[in-house]
Structures are given as structure tokens and as C-alpha cells.
Amino acid sequence: MQTKSILAIDDEEIVRMCCSRILRTAGYDVDTSSGGPGALEMTEEKKYDVVLTDLKMPGMDGIALMVELKKRLPDARVIVVTGYSTIETATRAMTMGAYNYLEKPFSPESLLAVVRDALGEKV
């Protein structure tokens, strides 16, 4: 089975580190980016199955990035990670095309659960 590729975008390094450590340990191919423009560049060279993106970032915010990503990677599923643990922000993102959302701070189990769900794997 081909290794699934995941792109994690967050302006904070600790979050990027968490994502890559948890997902790599689980056997996924993980790339990270600290912002929207860098992430879009990376999608030029590589296809990703799941994109995890923070909602609030300097420069380009998560929603705008998600809209761009959906154009380039129509098959990729986008999971928004939000620091504002409000259903409303997440629901808004989902109406804009996000597949699911994840509240910060997250535990390794919850991250793996949403990613596996997005990949259509058995949770």
C-alpha cells in the first residue's frame, strides 16, 4: 500500500513538530510548512492526501489557504485546526469545504483519529 502523504501547516513550530512526530510514528509521510505561500509552493511538486491547516496565521489565513488548496488539490481532504474551541468557527470552515476540524490543544489519539477518518481508514 502506498504511503499516504500529509501536509501540516502551522505558524508555530511546536505544532508542526507535534504533527510530524505523531503522524510519522503512525507511518505517514509528513511534510510541514510555516505558512500559506510556502505550502502552496509545495503542492506544485507533490500531491497530498490530507492537509492539516491552522486557521489563524500571519499573512494568509487558514480559510483562504484552504480555498486555494482545494483548487490545486481537489482530491485532498482538509482538516482545520483551531485554537478557538468554538463550534461556530469550525462549522464555518466546514461549510467552506473543510472535511473536519480539530481543536487545539489536541492529544495524539484525537489527531490520529481525525486523520485516519479523513483518509478513509478504519479508526
Binding site: 511546536i14 513538530m17 512526530r21 505523531i22 490543544p105 489536541f106 492529544s107 489519539e109
Partner: peptide
């Protein structure tokens, strides 16, 4: 974000 780090790495 830092809390995510603490929880993740503790795990």
C-alpha cells in the same frame, strides 16, 4: 499551541 506540544510529547 504550547499545550499541544506538552500533551503530544508527554504521550
Amino acid at each position: 499551541s504550547p499545550l499541544t506540544g506538552i500533551i503530544t510529547f508527554a504521550h
